[in-house]
């Protein structure tokens, strides 16, 4: 079983990211349980989303304390929160960085940075850093195929404008290529 923890602010798409990633893994025949760190509905408040995935059904309902993967959508949280508490040895963190972002150095885990917000602005036209981060996760972790991710995004945007879908697909691809 692998566990992923996403750091973001409410409104930055953490729950959607966990759901899309879970959908992509599910398309590959894996089991997943994606859930928010419940509550804090106020836009802008720091929050987490989690994803637990495995080849067999996922049953544990507790929060994630020892993630294999950490995605940080909002880098400003690194200063105020201990984002790497409980981080598993050998784990991988993927961090959206902007100019001037402080990049932490970890001894026992890998840190990958990506200008996800910049990619999002170029592709989607909005600062949805979570979308390119998903592409980066697919590339870096090897846990999920890019095609599955694109399919999950397509499902998520079903019924919405094709233009919006295409932009998001592009954002995921660009994120994948950027790392």
């Amino acid at each position: 079983m692998k566990e992923l923890k996403i750091y973001a602010r409410a409104g930055q798409g953490a729950i959607t990211s966990a759901a899309i990633l879970g959908q992509a893994l599910f398309l590959e025949g894996k089991y997943a349980y994606g859930f928010p760190n419940f509550g804090a509905a106020r836009m802008g408040a720091p929050m987490n989303a989690f994803l637990r995935f495995d080849d067999k059904p996922v049953r544990s309902r507790s929060q994630i304390y020892h993630p294999d993967y950490i995605l940080i959508i909002d880098p400003s949280l690194i200063k105020s929160l201990d984002c790497f508490a409980g981080f598993k040895e050998g784990g991988t963190a993927i961090i959206n960085v902007k100019q001037g972002s402080e990049i932490p150095t970890l001894n026992k885990q890998k840190v990958i940075t990506i200008s996800a917000e910049e990619i999002a602005l170029q592709t989607i036209g909005k600062p949805f850093a979570n979308t390119p981060l998903l592409g980066a996760f697919a590339r870096v972790s090897g846990e999920v195929r890019l095609e599955s991710l694109l399919q999950a995004i397509t499902m998520h945007f079903s019924g919405k404008r094709k233009e919006a879908l295409d932009k998001n697909l592009e954002a995921v691809r660009k994120g994948y290529e950027a790392v």
Binding site: I15, A19, G22, Y31, A32, Y33, G34, F35, G39, R61
Partner: peptide, 12 residues
């Protein structure tokens, strides 16, 4: 059904 844990949790 457990609030949040199931109501807001995603699963197959």
């Amino acid at each position: 059904i457990d609030g949040y844990i199931l109501t807001h949790g995603h699963e197959p």
